[in-house]
């Protein structure tokens, strides 16, 4: 009978590094080799890593902007509907709706929905929450939130060839390279 391991699907190759500089140089080499499905895992955001990985600007800002805009106009519309259209409350001969008196509330609504847009936009773009991940089963990977740096190249990558990729990561200076299963 085959062992269970024979049926396991490889997730990718995981290479461990001790310093942020080593991980960054490795990332530059992986980027230049033309890989697309790969990632660097670090205990804190390493500055310069986005360039080393060849990533552009994040798109979270669009979520913030659109949600904030909706919050502002939604707030204005709500106040107009409630105080001027549905049930006018005349006080002291003042107009039932004025953008100036409505501004503080609409402003707070802008910030409120902008903040929701930022957090949930970030989670959406990161495809989080994800409560299961092949890497999270690996004990060595647990140090990623402690003091180690990992470069992971997924087996799904069109350029992935186990031996060649392993050699690339070894050349980049990793002392520990491991195949992680799905």
């Amino acid at each position: 009978m085959d062992s269970l391991d024979d049926y396991q699907i490889p997730y990718g190759l995981m290479a461990e590094f001790d310093t942020p500089a080593d991980a960054m140089h490795a990332a530059e080499q992986v980027r230049d080799a033309g890989f697309t499905r790969w990632d660097v895992h670090t205990p804190y955001p390493v500055h310069g890593m986005d360039d080393a990985m060849g990533l552009g600007n994040s798109k979270v800002g669009w979520f913030t902007f659109c949600c904030g805009l909706c919050g502002f106009f939604g707030g204005m519309l709500m106040i107009w509907y409630m105080n001027a259209y549905d049930y006018g409350i005349p006080v002291g001969g003042k107009p039932n709706f004025s953008p100036f008196a409505s501004f503080p509330v609409a402003y707070e609504m802008t910030i409120l929905s902008g903040a929701f847009g930022s957090l949930f936009g970030m989670l959406f773009l990161n495809k989080l929450p994800r409560l299961h991940h092949p890497l999270l089963k690996n004990m060595r990977f647990a140090d990623v939130t402690h003091d180690k740096f990992f470069v992971v190249i997924e087996a799904d990558d069109p350029k992935y060839e186990e031996e060649e990729t392993r050699a690339l990561l070894k050349k980049a200076g990793s002392k520990h390279i491991e195949l992680v299963n799905e």
Partner: peptide
């Protein structure tokens, strides 16, 4: 939420 310290996430 399944945080892995991924740089694409950071």
């Amino acid at each position: 939420l399944g945080w892995t310290g991924s740089n694409r996430h950071w």
